[in-house]
């Protein structure tokens, strides 16, 4: 295989791993617990910026090429871990303000507004994170170690991403299938009931907000260490919606389903547009890509709301008729 194709393949595989981690993170929040985090992309972005700041070194060292606050040059795993910590902290902060006693749908929109405001702030303050242009020249971790450069380095990075992705998969699967996972699903199905059983639904929401924020940040950090650049145009609020589409198409609370969704949407659709035959200009194609994603979401919600690979619902004993409300709409907290 020539090296250009290999680089293309490694890029796709890294994207896939990053999107898998991010989609599972959103799935814990939205699919399992029923929290509509419409500001999701903000957490991925925070992780990317954090990892970039922790590996770029002071801004002065680049000769004023780009401006940002702080800037440290930490050895390899620390920027990733720092990003995870930033994501978790941001999850706590945003959750503390955003998850207050607002009705769930308004809560979602407030979170959407949070992400719009965040990108507005970053764009308008050039000294903060280099404004519109974004951060670039983020050093690739351990480049040149053991003679790894170019294509061989890219494959090593794919391997590293695969390991991280596997660890996240194990973590998420164990969490979802644990007794704690049952608490989360109880919060989704009927939060008042969960509260009545002594499991605080607001605490559970907060916990998945922090955990999801940390994992989203990890995905962003991995991405920025591979692509070496991160700018506001890459995390506009509709990007959150890509992950929602992935979860809805794959199957809410279904880890394999979400993985299929990530492969189809994040890699499939995004690449399909690049290979689009007609010579339409790029901005029109980008718009139509969003239209397709929107129509796919509506179509799945209408014809197959349970997704491609539905969540396996365990039942204990016979269920009384009429209580079997699963397998369809977004059902959480409909209330009496």
């Amino acid at each position: 295989m020539n090296s250009a194709i290999q680089l293309y393949a490694t890029t796709l595989l890294v994207y896939l791993a990053v999107n898998l981690i991010a989609s599972w993170a959103l799935d814990i929040q939205f699919g399992v617990t029923g929290v509509l985090n419409f500001g999701f992309i903000l957490f991925q972005s925070a992780g990317a910026y954090a990892a970039a700041l922790l590996s770029l070194g002071p801004a002065k060292a680049s000769g004023g090429f780009q401006q940002y606050f702080g800037g440290w040059q930490l050895p390899f795993p620390l920027p990733l871990l720092g990003a995870v910590a930033v994501g978790a902290a941001l999850g706590w902060l945003v959750g503390w303000v955003g998850l207050r006693r607002l009705r769930g749908d308004f809560q979602a929109v407030v979170l959407l507004v949070v992400s719009v405001v965040a990108s507005l702030v970053v764009e308008s303050l050039p000294g903060f994170l280099n404004g519109d242009a974004g951060l670039s020249l983020v050093p690739k971790p351990l480049l040149g170690l053991a003679g790894l450069t170019g294509v061989s380095y890219a494959w090593a990075f794919v391997g590293f991403c695969a390991v991280v992705c596997g660890l996240v998969a194990i973590l998420v699967a164990r969490l979802v299938h644990s007794p704690y996972g049952r608490v989360l699903r109880a919060v989704r199905e009927n939060d008042a009931l969960a509260d009545a059983m002594g499991r605080s639904s607001s605490r559970a929401r907060m916990e998945v907000f922090v955990l999801g924020g940390a994992l989203a940040a990890l995905s962003g950090a991995l991405l920025v260490e591979f692509t070496t650049a991160w700018a506001p145009s890459g995390w506009l609020y509709p990007e959150t919606f890509v992950y929602f589409t992935i979860v809805i198409i794959g199957g809410r609370a279904s880890l394999p389903g979400v993985a299929v969704g990530a492969a189809l949407i994040a890699v499939g659709i995004q690449q399909a547009v690049q290979l689009f035959p007609i010579g339409a200009d790029a901005t029109v194609l980008a718009s139509l890509q969003w239209v397709v994603i929107g129509i796919l979401t509506l179509g799945f919600l209408w014809w197959r709301p349970q997704g491609l690979i539905p969540e396996r619902v365990r039942r204990f004993g016979p269920t009384p008729a009429g209580s079997a409300t699963r397998g369809g709409e977004v059902q959480e907290g409909v209330g009496p």
């Binding site: 769930g104 749908d105 509709p238 809805i248 239209v291 929107g294 919600l301 709301p305 959480e332 907290g333």
Partner: peptide, 19 residues
Amino acid sequence: TSTFGMVIVTISTALIGQN
């Protein structure tokens, strides 16, 4: 479709319309 599901329906519509 619950109120939560409807937010996703409306944001899909918004995305389609906007684009």
